[in-house]
Every structure is written in C-alpha cells, then in structure tokens.
C-alpha cells in the first residue's frame, strides 16, 4: 500500500504564551515541532505498513525549515518525503493549502491512501483533510479512531462521532483523518534516526508543481485575517470579595467578559 502522510510543522504551543502585561505572544525560542495530531497520522500509517506492507511518504508545505521536520519523520520510519516550499505559498488559507497539497500528491504519483491528522494545533481548522480529499476527488472518512480492516481496495474504519462511533467502509484510493485513539505514537527508531542524518528532503516550488501564483498562498486564498487581538484574562490574579452569592455571579461575569465562557454575539 502506498501511503502519503500529510504533516505540518507548527510552533510548539507550549512555548507560545501570552504576555500577561502586553497581551502579545511570548515565545521562548520558537521550537518548531511536528503538529501533535499529525503524529497520530504517522502512527496510523506505520501501523498499516506493518499490517499490509508498502511505502510511506511524508508530504508537507512550509518554509525551508520544515525540511527539518521531514527529517524527523524519517526518524520515525517514513520512507521518503517531499517539501512544498515557495515564498508564494505564504499566507495560505485552507483553500490555497489544499491546492498546493493536491499538486504535491500528484507530484508524488498519487497514493492508495492519504492520512492526515484531525487538525493542526496552530490553526485548529480541521479543514485540510476533507478539503484535500475533495480536491483530489477521493472519498474520505474524518476522525478515524481505529482501522479494523485493511485490504488493497478498501479500509474498514471506526469514525468518531459526537454521540459514539460508526463503522465505515472506505473504498481506496481514499483519505482519512485520524484522532488520538488510533494509538499512541511510537518513539523514533535508532535506525530511522541514522537514516535521517543523511536525508535531504526534495523540495518543490509552485512552478515545479504547475501552480500559478494566484492559486497559492495569500493571493490564492478566499479568507483574509482582518484583525488579530488578544483575549482578556490570562495572567491576572484577582480575589473576588464579598458574600458567596455575589462572588459567584461576579466570577461568571468576569469569565464572560474575558471570553473564556462564550455566550454568543
């Protein structure tokens, strides 16, 4: 089975904290890591390769430093990787991202199965997997928590829903996004890490992928960020005085004002 795993390099959220005074993002030397949810995608792919054999390719779009993440993926046991990198890709929303990823998948000659994490911890959109499936005209199952059956032409998977789960048969080629229940990500392996030392990720830009500038990046995006602001709250310390009833009501008002509790607009 030929499997493509989509990975995203994200800032380590543990190192992204809000400055309590200035309300700006503080970072302690932005450690860049593999999106934690994508590690579950990687684990799902490694499990599948153990079961049915085959090849795993890691695909990512990002700045040049994302090559380091692909090297890390090799350490986990991935066979090869492709980095989609171009200044033109910057500022992409999920529409423009899936345009580049779909071109990347074609560049790799397609796959029997594409595996994505359920979402990225920086964007939290959960849109890229389903969007990519649509771009490629593939059937999809999102939020897969277990793979019951793996055959050459179909998978039987468990899809997590809000009220339980469903057992779904997915014809291949197809795409799944996976959740953490798929299995705890294994550690990197020593042999993988030794291979990773020598690994140089192939890089493809917009031209190599046959993409025009207005299809990718900020220019190729439908959505625009018009404002970024800090939510209130974090960092401050306050004792709420008074009788219990008043304090109880006051704390709810504070949490609502801080947008920690959301009531609606």
């Amino acid at each position: 089975m030929k499997i493509i795993v989509c990975l995203k390099q994200v800032p380590d959220t543990a190192s992204v904290k809000l400055d309590p005074v200035t309300h700006t993002l503080k970072r302690e030397g932005v450690a860049a890591v593999i999106n934690p949810f994508d590690l579950f995608a990687l684990e799902a792919a490694l499990q599948l390769r153990e079961r049915v054999g085959g090849q795993i390719l890691a695909l990512t779009m990002g700045p040049p430093q994302a090559a380091e993440m692909l090297r890390e993926a090799i350490g986990y046991g991935v066979d090869d990787g492709l980095l989609l990198s171009d200044r033109a890709f910057a500022g992409a929303d999920t529409w423009a991202t899936t345009a580049a990823l779909a071109a990347g998948v074609r560049h790799l000659g397609g796959a029997d199965l594409i595996v994505c994490g359920k979402q990225a911890v920086d964007g939290d959109t959960a849109q890229v997997g389903p969007g990519l499936a649509m771009r490629l005209g593939l059937p999809q199952v999102a939020f897969v928590k277990a793979i019951r059956e793996a055959a050459a032409d179909h998978l039987v998977v468990e899809r997590q829903m809000d009220d339980g789960y469903e057992v779904v048969s997915l014809p291949l080629p197809g795409l799944i996004t996976v959740v953490r229940e798929i299995g705890e990500p294994r550690p990197p392996s020593l042999k993988g890490k030794m291979r990773a030392k020598k690994f140089e990720a192939p890089v493809a830009g917009a031209a190599a992928l046959g993409l025009a500038e207005d299809q990718v990046g900020l220019r190729g995006s439908f959505t625009q960020v018009v404002e970024v602001f800090a939510p209130g709250a974090a960092g401050q310390r306050e004792m709420l005085p008074g009788p219990a009833e008043a304090a109880g009501r006051a704390v709810i008002d504070r949490l609502v004002a801080d947008k920690v509790i959301l009531l609606g607009s």
């Binding site: 550690p187 392996s189 020593l190 042999k191």
Partner: peptide, 8 residues
C-alpha cells in the same frame, strides 16, 4: 513494545 519499535 515501544523500546522494540525504537530498535533499542
């Protein structure tokens, strides 16, 4: 199992 997967 994890140690085995890590080749240790």
């Amino acid at each position: 199992k994890a140690l085995a997967q890590a080749d240790l």
